[in-house]
């Protein structure tokens, strides 16, 4: 019994450590991406021609900023590697990534809808594109049932046509009319 309790206590203590190690690993990836990106941008900024009128040219400030960013990322990456080594339980990365993605599946689906919506907006016009986006997004979040379909249809109609009218008539802000409706 005691042995079992100790085991479960040890497992309980190791679970947060493993979770923390995985989070630190994800951050390490971000430091590496930002670090490499900043080195590249710093080099690109350094290629900009210098000015004859001032000691600092157009490229100096970006070079300085991305140089500092690279140094900060390097320090953070080194510290994170040390932390991960101390925690020492970097297992189940693939599984953790799957859980992470599963938790955020609606977020990414919503973002996918947003990207398609933004792509279609100039062609389909604000009212039509917004109506379809709102309808799909609302049903995606709430689930499909007779009640949610009716609610979503009404809300989509009100906010697509209503917002377009509000901005055009009250605030004189004209949203894209779309190729289909432009005449």
């Amino acid at each position: 019994m005691t042995n079992g309790t100790e085991k479960s206590a040890a497992a309980g203590a190791s679970a947060p450590a493993a979770s923390r190690a995985r989070t630190e690993f994800a951050r390490l990836v971000s430091y590496i991406v930002f670090g490499l990106g900043s080195v590249y941008l710093s080099v690109r900024a350094g290629e900009l021609p210098t000015s004859r009128w001032e000691p600092l040219g157009a490229g100096s400030f970006p070079q300085l900023v991305f140089g500092v960013l690279a140094v900060l990322c390097l320090i953070s990456a080194v510290r994170t590697v040390l932390d991960i080594r101390k925690l020492g339980q970097l297992d189940g990365l693939g599984e953790a990534l799957c859980v992470w993605l599963r938790t955020r599946r609606i977020s990414f689906a919503l973002f996918g809808c947003l990207v398609i919506y933004l792509g279609v907006l100039p062609y389909a016009g604000f009212s039509l594109a917004t109506f379809v986006f709102l309808l799909i997004a609302q049903l995606m979040i709430a689930g499909i049932s007779k009640k949610t379909v009716i609610q979503s249809l009404i809300a989509a109609l009100v906010f697509s046509v209503g917002l377009n009218l509000l901005f055009a008539e009250v605030f004189n802000v004209f949203l894209p009319r779309g190729v289909l409706f432009a005449s």
């Binding site: 919503l110 907006l121 709102l134 979040i141 802000v173």
Partner: peptide, 23 residues
Amino acid sequence: KQFIVPTVMICCVIGAFALNNRV
């Protein structure tokens, strides 16, 4: 949330577009 999140997202899109009228 089903009403709030997508609708606020649309308001963000309007805000971003209305700034410079640039797609």
